[in-house]
Write a protein that binds this DNA or RNA. Sequence first.
DNA 1: CCTTGATTGATCATTCTGTTCAAAGCGGAC
DNA 2: GTCCGCTTTGAACAGAATGATCAATCAAGG
Lengths: 175, 175
Amino acid sequence: MEPAKDAREQHPDVQFDDTDRALLLALDEDPRMTTMALAQRCGLARGTVHARLERFREAGVLRLNSARVDPARLGRPLSAMVAVELDQHDIDGAIAALSRVPEVLECFAPAGETDLLVRVVARDPDDLYRVSEDVRLCPGVTRTRTSVYLRRVIPYRVGPLLREGLAANRLPKTR
Amino acid sequence: MEPAKDAREQHPDVQFDDTDRALLLALDEDPRMTTMALAQRCGLARGTVHARLERFREAGVLRLNSARVDPARLGRPLSAMVAVELDQHDIDGAIAALSRVPEVLECFAPAGETDLLVRVVARDPDDLYRVSEDVRLCPGVTRTRTSVYLRRVIPYRVGPLLREGLAANRLPKTR
DNA sequence: CCTTGATTGATCATTCTGTTCAAAGCGGAC
DNA sequence: GTCCGCTTTGAACAGAATGATCAATCAAGG
């Protein structure tokens, strides 16, 4: 059975309720916390926690666990954004080719003149040049412009959104 | 005990070896897979798996579990990037203020003319206007320019980097 | 008020965990 | 080639947790 590639691909309309969010916040403390401990932290029955975790897993509403891996720890500390212009012919082909570049982390279609923004990582500036070339050589790509991210000022986080509006009694209980 | 905020903050030089990567790939199938099952999937001893998972947890080398949450499932389907110019006085103050905006997901300092790039989410266009204002009103922010991401073409993924160069016998064994 | 789905708490057989220990393996230094 | 230190393995065992089932209760919507 193949794991869900992306939460958005499955059940895109499913939203997290307050119980889900409480569990997700508790899992930030220790993602492998037992269901018994989660039940205690969240003031829920063990069966409820089990059911909710099963629902997360079966519905594929969370990103892959590897989303927690920093590419820097895989030898790619350099981060950059590549703005890509496309030939109007074969956007899907370009996207498929971009998907096959391992250094491509994610890709957006913004409003405005730029066709795609491609988030990439690399070992060092030379490697970034190579990765940019890999991107440029994807079919349908007519022009690229690379902007290096020098420093990550605020690391990726979703916790504040999870906590927002959650009643104090739904936050994980202090020990 | 406070969970690690960011993998980079703790042990920034720690890299994942092949065993780590094999485990991380197996965890993409099911992040709550038992250590027994992980040992079988990866051809490792149960004690080794236990030791490695403990090391992940104690060294804080993985991002928080909430990094797996799609903000769209928290009612913020709209994604955008805000380019920010700063007053040279108080960059740290600006960053601290930006950190307090829940809709701010992450923030980079790119090379070039733009001071900061701030990745934000919002409920809808009106809400995005409000969030952009929240960003603009942070101390030290002199000018902002917002670019809406219309579509996520390649969702965030690190799996290809994890798999790259990993010997076939280190990939999780097929059942 | 009724219905439906979710949650609770109890139960029980099975599985897993956490820890310890000795032995073996591996890689680097000399 | 030898030595040393660290990692991994496999076994053992007590205790904890799990997965599944079930009846009772609760909550929300019609």
